[in-house]
Amino acid sequence: MTDTPTPAPGQIWQDNDPRADERLVWIERTDDTHATVRQVKLTPAGEPVPLPGVRRTRIRLDRFRPTSAGYRYISGGETR
């Protein structure tokens, strides 16, 4: 089992809420308490592409953990 990395810019995370229909978010930046993210889809090569018309969202950093109300790490970025 791998450890969940600290959220960092460039990482892709998946929403664990079953109502989110496998929503993927890409972290643009972080501050002391929140991450600013954009919803993305992945190309066949695994590159994130922002979805058109979807706004940026701020998510508390403590929600980036693999629980039913959190997010699970997919790939990318710095893994501190």
Rank of each mutant, 00 (worst) to 15 (best):
T2M: 15
T2P: 13
T2Y: 15
T4C: 13
P5N: 02
T6M: 13
T6S: 12
P7V: 04
A8Y: 04
P9T: 09
P9F: 00
G10P: 02
G10R: 06
G10F: 02
I12C: 06
W13F: 01
Q14Y: 07
Q14L: 08
D15R: 06
D15Y: 08
N16P: 04
D17N: 15
D17C: 04
D17E: 13
P18E: 13
P18Q: 08
P18G: 07
P18F: 10
P18N: 09
R19K: 12
A20F: 02
D21Y: 11
D21P: 02
E22L: 11
R23M: 00
R23K: 10
R23S: 03
V25P: 02
W26M: 09
I27T: 04
I27V: 07
I27W: 01
I27L: 01
E28N: 14
T30S: 05
T30V: 15
D32M: 11
D32V: 09
D32G: 06
T33R: 13
T33Q: 14
T33W: 11
A35Q: 03
A35I: 03
T36Q: 01
T36V: 14
T36D: 08
V37Q: 03
V37P: 00
V40F: 07
V40K: 04
K41C: 09
K41V: 14
K41T: 15
T43K: 07
P44M: 06
A45H: 10
A45K: 14
G46H: 10
G46A: 06
G46M: 05
E47V: 12
E47L: 08
E47T: 10
V49S: 06
P50F: 15
P50S: 11
L51A: 06
L51T: 09
L51K: 12
P52H: 08
P52G: 02
G53D: 07
G53P: 01
G53H: 08
G53W: 07
G53K: 07
V54I: 12
V54A: 09
V54P: 04
V54F: 12
R55D: 10
R56P: 07
R56D: 11
R56N: 10
T57K: 14
T57N: 12
R58G: 01
R60C: 05
D62A: 08
D62N: 14
R63T: 11
R63K: 14
F64L: 02
F64R: 02
F64C: 05
R65G: 06
R65K: 14
P66F: 09
P66D: 15
P66K: 13
T67F: 05
T67P: 03
T67W: 09
S68E: 15
S68M: 13
A69Q: 11
G70L: 05
G70C: 01
Y71T: 01
Y73R: 03
Y73M: 05
I74M: 15
S75M: 14
S75D: 15
G76H: 00
G76V: 00
G76D: 00
G76F: 02
T79Y: 10
T79I: 09
